[in-house]
Design a protein around this nucleic acid. Structure first.
Lengths: 242, 242
DNA sequence: ACCTGAACACCGTTCAAGT
DNA sequence: ACCTGAACACCGTTCAAGT
């Protein structure tokens, strides 16, 4: 059950045959992405990347500078997978919806990186085509210079922040007993102290924030996301003059 | 400049005088909270907590089970600080606003824990009074059983997810040159390729998601948050019958 | 410039032993 | 039950040395 299943991991790097071509940054990021998708962020160690590439740890260190630098760099790869819908002749509410769904889709594909994207400053010009499109759509919708920034932040804050919370990771260790424990605690709440919660319990248990024990990675909150998206678009429209 | 400034850190635990009273879970969590507030999540090690309390690392381990268990436990302490506004005779939009501002306030107070709350499953019955109030307010507002869950998730998803993204932490290492580098990259973007972004640049540089290099912990996005809050309340109201 | 090979300081966790 | 004292396996990073 341990993440590192490879026999002989940690041993000396073994080249399969002859000289490998010079190590490249893209090669490192691809290996890192594979590791984090498989084993989570904790599994992404410099040594794991080095092992996978058949080099010494310092080879990775030389290219990436540090582990946190590696994590930051690999998190930007998620933005490369964003495929935005065409903008021409599409009403802005439809475009905003499609954009938010696409963000959520790529974050779900790399849900272990969602916590990095959601809580660590990501600075990459690779996201600029995406940013340009969002600003363009909001400008065309009628948000002028002052309100453009706040509208943009409202939209992006939702589009990234909401799925990041949805895709919260489960605790790494534990003996899986905590799930049953928490479920039992919820079932044992005093109905007199928590009347609204008790009434809603069948609908919310394991399906609502602060009341669930499974991650959105395995138990998606689809209808809630769509509802929140409706709220965003309707509320945004209400801010437009006219 | 190193986080551990204490001389003799890592040395044998030194009791100041006589026998300390038996170590308690609350005592450990208080020490852990102080450490993470001062030095960030990376500084929160079992040994740092042990050093601060004058015990051996295994004493902490015995009480908390694991480091990730410690992190999860200390993150729930943030919910203890939530002081919700009274509910009687307050229109639901006002209450939702006050609640969201309060969540953001306590997350800001412990902004290094925002990344835990925003991206790790937090299961604590200590948050149930808070949950009860939110469900109660939304029920009174007119959201029935089916729509109550999705409305609740929409609201909480915003109230926690948005500040979590705002409070994104800066990379730990680096030589602070990356800030200037990123600023220069933004300034050097081709205006023909990014017309909307170029036009908006004076307003958005370091003030908008994906375009900033300072965390919301030091550069708050106050007006954007209030704007997003307006959107949430207006959009939520539009979902009510009548 | 790019990487090997080895070392250092640190950390989470485990273990036997004490009380 | 609660903690000491020491050990183990692992990790990020550094360093000298090679090419």
């Amino acid at each position: 059950m341990s993440p590192q299943a490879e026999p002989g991991a940690g041993s000396k790097p073994k080249r399969s045959s002859g000289r490998r071509p010079s190590l490249t940054r893209e090669e490192i990021l691809a290996a890192a992405l594979a590791i984090v998708d498989e084993g989570g962020l904790d599994a992404l160690t410099m040594r794991a990347v080095a092992d996978r590439l058949g080099v010494y740890p310092n080879a990775v260190h030389w290219h990436m500078g540090s582990r946190s630098g590696l994590i930051g760099a690999v998190s930007t790869k998620v933005f490369d997978e964003i495929r935005l819908p065409p903008q021409r002749d599409v009403p802005w509410p439809d475009w905003i919806r499609a954009m938010a769904r696409e963000i959520r889709r790529v974050m779900r594909r790399h849900h272990h990186l969602a916590q990095v994207i959601g809580t660590q400053l990501v600075t990459t010009t690779g996201a600029m085509p995406f940013v340009e499109r969002v600003l363009s759509v909001l400008t065309d919708a009628g948000f002028d210079d002052e309100r453009l920034t706040v509208a943009y932040n409202s939209v992006i804050g939702f589009a990234i922040g909401w799925p990041a919370l949805e895709l919260s990771t489960e605790p790494t260790d534990q003996h899986s007993a905590w799930k049953d424990d928490f479920a039992a605690e919820l079932a044992g709440l005093n109905p007199l102290l928590f009347p609204a919660l008790t009434r809603a319990m069948p609908a919310v248990r394991n399906r609502a924030y602060l009341l669930r024990w499974d991650s959105g990675a395995t138990e998606p909150l689809d209808t809630s996301f769509e509802f929140a998206l409706d709220i965003l678009v309707a509320g945004l429209g209400a801010q437009l003059p006219g």
